[in-house]
C-alpha cells in the first residue's frame, strides 16, 4: 500500500493533464443533459431585468476580450436574446478595446434570420448587424440597440458618463454618426438616465469600478456577469445590495440560460465542467491521503 501511495505522489503531471483532457472532451460528444439549479445570485439578476418595463434602456458594458469568451459570451448572448424578446433596448459600450467587438459577435450569433440582407425603403439592412431576428422579435440598429464602441480611460469614462454620455462617447462604432442622431439615445444624457446596467467583466476595469462609480455615485442599478476568477472579489457587493445579481463563470452563464428559457452552449459545457471537477476533487482527496499516509510512515522510520 505504501508503495502505491508513493507512486501516486510521484505520478507524472502529464497523466493528470491527459485525464483532465479526456474528462473535458468526452462529454462534449455524449450529449448528456444535467439539471442546473438556479442560484439566488442569478435569480436576483433575472428578477431585476424582468421587472423592467417594456422599452426600458439598458447599458451593456462589455469589459472583456476573446480570452474570456467561453465564460462571458454565453451570458452576452442570453442577455441580448432576452432583451430583444422582451422589447428592452440596449446601448453597448466597452472599457476594454475588444469588448464591443465581442458584443457584435454575440448579436451575429443569436440572429436567426436565414437571409443575408433585406432592402427596406431603399436602404440595405444586414441581418446580424442592422437587424437582429430572434424568433418573432426583431431589433433594429439605432432604434432598439446601438454600439458606441470602446473608450479609453477606465473608470474615468464611467465618471464622465455620470455627467455627460456625449462627452465620453461622441459617435457610434458602426457608422461613426454622432450619438444624438440615434433614436435610442433620445433623452439619454447621463448615466442615471439608464434604467439598468448589465456589466460583463473579466477584470480591471470592470464590475468593481461600475459598482464604485455607477452604482454608489450615480445610483444606477447594475447586474454583472463575471469570470469565475473575478466572482469571489465582487460577491461582497452582492450581499450588501450594491449589485443587482451576479453570474459567476460558466456555471452562472448556464443558470442564466435556464432562467431566460434558452439552453445553449454554457448548459452543454456544464457536463464537461462537472466531469473535470469530479476528477479534480478525486485528485485532491487521493493526493492528501497519499501524502498523510507516506508522511506517517517516513516519520516512524526516522
Amino acid at each position: 500500500m505504501q508503495r502505491i501511495f508513493e507512486k501516486l505522489l510521484a505520478i507524472d503531471r502529464r497523466i493528470i493533464f491527459l485525464v483532465i483532457f479526456l474528462a473535458l472532451s468526452i462529454p462534449i460528444f455524449l450529449g448528456i443533459k444535467i439539471n442546473i439549479k438556479v442560484t439566488d445570485e442569478v435569480q436576483i439578476f433575472y428578477d431585476a431585468i424582468s421587472s423592467l418595463p417594456s422599452g426600458s434602456r439598458i447599458m451593456v458594458a462589455c469589459d472583456y476580450d476573446p480570452g474570456s469568451e467561453p465564460e462571458l459570451q454565453p451570458m452576452a448572448e442570453s442577455g441580448f436574446r432576452y432583451f430583444i424578446q422582451n422589447n428592452l433596448r440596449f446601448v453597448i459600450i466597452g472599457l476594454w478595446p475588444q469588448g464591443p467587438m465581442q458584443a457584435n459577435k454575440a448579436l451575429v450569433s443569436i440572429n436567426e434570420a436565414k437571409d443575408e440582407f433585406i432592402v427596406e425603403n431603399g436602404d440595405t439592412l444586414y441581418f446580424g448587424t442592422d437587424l437582429i431576428v430572434v424568433g418573432p422579435d426583431t431589433a433594429r440598429y439605432g432604434i432598439d440597440f446601438v454600439n458606441l464602441g470602446f473608450q479609453a480611460g477606465n473608470e474615468l469614462v464611467i465618471q464622465r458618463m455620470g455627467s455627460s454620455i456625449k462627452a465620453a462617447f461622441a459617435s457610434d462604432l458602426r457608422l461613426g454618426k454622432p450619438i444624438e442622431e440615434f433614436d435610442i439615445m433620445r433623452g439619454l444624457n447621463q448615466l442615471s438616465d439608464f434604467d439598468f446596467i448589465f456589466n460583463l467583466s473579466a477584470g480591471y476595469p470592470g464590475t468593481v469600478e461600475w459598482v464604485q462609480f455607477a452604482v454608489d455615485r450615480f445610483h444606477v442599478a447594475c447586474g454583472a456577469g463575471n469570470t469565475a476568477v473575478q466572482a469571489p472579489q465582487v460577491y461582497p457587493y452582492l450581499d450588501s445590495g450594491q449589485l443587482s445579481g451576479l453570474m459567476g463563470g460558466m456555471k452562472g452563464a448556464a443558470e442564466l440560460e435556464k432562467v431566460v428559457g434558452h439552453k445553449a452552449k454554457a448548459t452543454m459545457f456544464m457536463v464537461s465542467q462537472t466531469a473535470a471537477h469530479i476528477f479534480v476533487i478525486l485528485f485532491i482527496v487521493i493526493g492528501n491521503i497519499a501524502y498523510f499516509a507516506t508522511r506517517g510512515k517516513s516519520g516512524r522510520k526516522g
Partner: peptide
Amino acid sequence: YTVMSRMSLLIGRL
C-alpha cells in the same frame, strides 16, 4: 472558482 474558470477556458478551446 479559479479551477472552474481555467476549465471553462479549456472547454472553449476544445
